[in-house]
């Protein structure tokens, strides 16, 4: 199994400046891009902006990380990835970063975060999401990962999803907000 190149960052509160024009632009495309030859011109026309302005601002928003990714959102269920499990680990805090990077390197892991414990009810501080075409496949991935990263002695639990009630992206409005 190949490992992906792994990037890593500590969450910061860094906020690039996003002005009202950016907000209107983001609101205009939050539900998707027009399916026409020149989609950025069409968006611009609806906002009173030129195509070049739209392209320049979107490129800047992407460079600044406000737009994480420009592409498709796949409904993984429809592609046959019907099993998903959240695996949670109780990891010594000083080892969490190293183990998090190790877990995030597997191509079947789609999310990996360190989160706070909530003692005594909840002891786990490292989370990852494993997708697979079946529960057996998810468990096989997990076993591979445990062996590869040397996690045998770390307490963990597997939380398979039973039902999905909502799956939508976050919604942003174009309304002007107080800062």
């Amino acid at each position: 199994m190949e490992l992906n190149v792994v990037k890593h960052s500590v969450v910061t509160s860094q906020r690039p400046s996003v002005d009202d024009i950016d907000r209107r632009l983001l609101a205009a495309i939050q539900h998707g891009l027009p399916l026409t030859s020149r989609p950025y011109a069409e968006i611009g026309a609806s906002l009173g902006m030129s195509e070049a302005q739209v392209i320049a601002r979107l490129a800047q928003l992407k460079a600044g990380g406000v737009i994480r990714r420009f592409g498709v959102v796949v409904r993984h269920h429809e592609l046959g990835y019907s099993a998903n499990a959240m695996v949670v680990w109780d990891v010594p805090d000083e080892q969490a970063a190293e183990l998090g990077r190790c877990l995030a390197g597997f191509d079947f892991i789609t999310l990996c975060y360190r989160r706070p414990r909530r003692l005594p009810a909840w002891r786990y501080n490292l989370y990852c999401m494993i997708h697979g075409q079946s529960r057996d496949e998810v468990l096989a991935h997990l076993e591979w990962m445990v062996n590869h990263c040397g996690l045998q002695s770390l307490p963990h639990e597997v939380l398979f999803s039973r039902r999905r009630f909502k799956q939508r992206g976050a919604v942003y409005t174009s309304g002007r907000r107080a800062r």
Partner: peptide, 9 residues
């Protein structure tokens, strides 16, 4: 199959 085609913020 695709739920959305556009930016992720």
């Amino acid at each position: 199959t695709l739920t959305r085609f556009g930016p992720m913020y």
